[in-house]
Write a protein that binds this DNA or RNA. Structure first.
Length: 584
RNA sequence: GCCGCUGUAGCUCAGUUGGCUAGAGCGCCUGACUGUGGAUCAGGAGGUCACGGGUUCAAAUCCCGUCGGCGGUACCA
């Protein structure tokens, strides 16, 4: 934007929407509303009650803790809330708040806050927009809708099984046929058991990185380069990272680390940002790294997962991803777990109980799966609807037990012309520790979240959403301005009869009025000029029929003179005639 | 964050090795049609060629930078 020069008028705002946000027009709004209503019906049938919470929460409530720096972590929309008076007086420098990034964290807050009066277990559903400041991609926005259902306050596996049933019911009610979707279930505890067996330690890489990094602060570029390449004592922390990648990193770190932040030549904020980026190169927790590696299975394939479980993997765009650093035996154990199949639930259970061996958590995980299996079978939900699949882990760290994912199995053609299954439209799991943050007491909880926009996209693919057919109102055209009151009367007659109708309120001539009605996709236009008024008649034009007929008519005379799609009737028959057309 | 591609009318895009007043299709507006959506025909409006600098007699075109868009990848509570 150009700088306003002396005396020039202020620059005009450019109409636009912030990146990652969008406008939603009538057809999509209605499609979403219809879908949500259907799902809501299912949720209520299962006995859940609605809840609404604010879009803004305190940052610590959401689980994001502020770093030392004077701004919150990236990824969320956060700001400091300062009351007007306090800003000037400086008495109170405000509190960090943020837009919610999911509906689960606010729920755990509500439970902790009102636990004395809330029924236990607390069963609620909630829909609303959530906000994430990530890079938007195809079909991914910074503001999007989630539709959650959760049961808080019971460890009973029946609650988990029920979540699977709800998701299945909801999808079917929306018109997705049995076989076009599958609810997949796994259990984090089983994976924990496997990781125990291979003796996986916890976050040591983060510390190793710390050790490498700290002495480098403020050192010369040459020194930094040397350290990154040296055999001792740091090579262990960077095992498996290609030399050229390390060189590249060293270049950037030296640029950031020199001159040192306290010299005043480099803004400290930028320096901190740089540091954070390099943290991200390394797994903070090996277990988490394993989870993410497995989670990448559908994207990276088996070899990709192997790489990510091991030293790391250089992806197609030339970025090196640091791996979980497992040794080959451990890798194969994890892969074995992941690939233990999606056959009959009984078979998967057998397989898994064998894999976890003596691990206590592992066995517990398997018995939870058995419990879920029994509940599902009793309720009549077989393998055609709910499967056990150990490759489903979900990236979230907070899940503690069963995890779920609703997948659509039909193929879509993506932008590259490649056929692939539509994929996940909902996910969830058990999170027994979330309320503990507030109260210190264990409050077991389980639930799922439907990605509303994604599911809506899926419904469009299978043709369950008719966005094109949105019907506009009956438009009463205005031919004689002085007779406005009489036109108005027609409009209200129609409205009183329950017919959506409006008076043409624009400035346009008659031709434009019909064009307007056409654009609104109006089924009917009501026409009355002096001819009609003289005889107490009105002309009713069937716009939809007319549109159809126009396809066959070539000559203009035919089109204009014929007018088979309109009839002139007595004024008193207005409502009756309009309704006749609407119902046809 | 990182890597690559890209930016010309409301939309989709042409624009030769730098060279006249920057074009097309669609859409929009007006008229043919004095009371009729569509089709047809005729006419019209609409552009700081993303922005800023540089090279040149001359830049939409070449170079540098900034910003935006797209794709991949990472992160994803």
């Amino acid at each position: 934007m150009s700088q306003p020069s002396e005396g020039a008028p202020p620059p005009r705002p450019v109409p636009r929407v912030p990146k990652g946000f969008r406008d939603v027009f009538a057809a999509d709004v209605e499609a979403r509303r219809n879908m949500v209503e259907t799902i809501r019906g299912v949720y209520e049938r299962y006995g859940f009650e609605p809840l609404e919470t604010p879009a803004v929460e305190h940052v610590d409530v959401l689980g994001k803790f502020l770093p030392e720096a004077d701004r919150p972590d990236a990824g969320i929309f956060a700001w400091k809330l300062i009351e007007e008076g306090d800003r000037d007086s400086g008495k109170n420098d405000g509190e960090w708040v943020a837009l919610r990034y999911d509906l689960t964290a606010p729920l755990s807050r509500v439970v902790a806050q009102y636990k004395e009066t809330l029924p236990t277990p607390f069963r609620r559903y909630q829909i609303g927009p959530v906000y994430r400041m990530e890079k938007p991609g195809p079909g991914r926005f910074r503001e999007f809708y989630q539709f959650d259902i959760d049961t808080v306050g019971t460890a009973n596996m029946a609650a988990d099984a029920e979540v699977c049933c709800i998701l299945a019911d909801a999808l079917e009610e929306l018109g997705i046929k049995r076989g076009e979707y599958v609810i997949k279930v796994n259990n984090r505890k089983v994976l924990e058991g496997i990781l125990d067996r291979i003796g996986l330690g916890h976050a040591h890489h983060q510390e190793a990185f710390h050790e490498v990094f700290r002495p480098l602060l403020g050192q010369s570029k040459a020194n930094i380069m040397k350290t990154f390449r040296s055999e001792e004592p740091y090579s262990g922390a960077f095992k498996g990272v290609p030399t050229e990648v390390l060189d590249q990193q060293a270049q950037k770190i030296s640029a950031a680390a020199w001159p040192p932040p306290w010299s005043g030549e480099k803004p400290p904020g930028e320096y901190v940002e740089m540091l954070k980026n390099y943290y991200n190169l390394f797994p903070k927790d090996q277990r988490l790294a394993v989870l993410r590696a497995i989670d990448k299975f559908d994207k990276s394939g088996l070899d990709g997962v192997r790489g990510l479980l091991g030293t790391g993997r250089l992806d197609t765009s030339g970025v090196f991803n640091y791996g979980a650093q497992l040794d080959p035996d451990a890798i194969e154990t994890v892969i074995g777990f992941m690939m233990s199949g999606i056959a009959d639930r009984n078979i998967v259970i057998d397989h898994l109980s064998h894999l976890v061996g003596d691990s206590v958590v592992g066995k517990q995980g398997v018995s939870e799966l058995i419990a879920i299996h029994e509940f599902l079978s009793a309720a009549g939900y077989g393998n055609d609807r709910v499967q056990f699949d150990p490759s489903i882990v979900r990236g979230l760290a907070y899940y503690t037990g069963p995890v779920f994912e609703a997948q659509l199995t039909f193929d879509i053609i993506d932008e590259d012309g490649v056929k692939r299954p539509f994929g996940s439209v909902a996910g969830g799991g058990r999170y027994d520790d979330l309320v503990k943050r507030f109260t210190g007491e264990l409050v077991p909880a389980t639930g799922a979240s439907i990605g509303v926009d994604r599911l809506l996209a899926a419904l469009k693919v299978v043709g369950k959403v008719k966005t094109e057919d949105r019907r506009g109102p009956v438009v009463v055209t205005v031919m004689d301005k002085p007779k406005l009151a009489e036109y108005q009367q027609m409009v209200f007659e129609l409205r009183r009869a329950g017919v959506a109708a409006e008076l043409y309120l624009g400035e346009g001539g008659f031709k434009q009025q019909l064009k307007y009605a056409d654009r609104r996709n109006s089924p009917v236009a009501v026409i009355a000029g002096s001819n009609e008024f003289e005889k107490s008649e009105i002309t009713i034009k069937n716009l939809r029929l007319g549109k159809e007929l126009a396809k066959q008519v070539a000559s203009r005379d035919e089109w204009r003179k014929g007018q088979p799609a309109q009839t002139t009737v007595a004024r008193a028959a207005l409502v009756e005639e309009v309704k006749k057309i609407l119902n046809s």
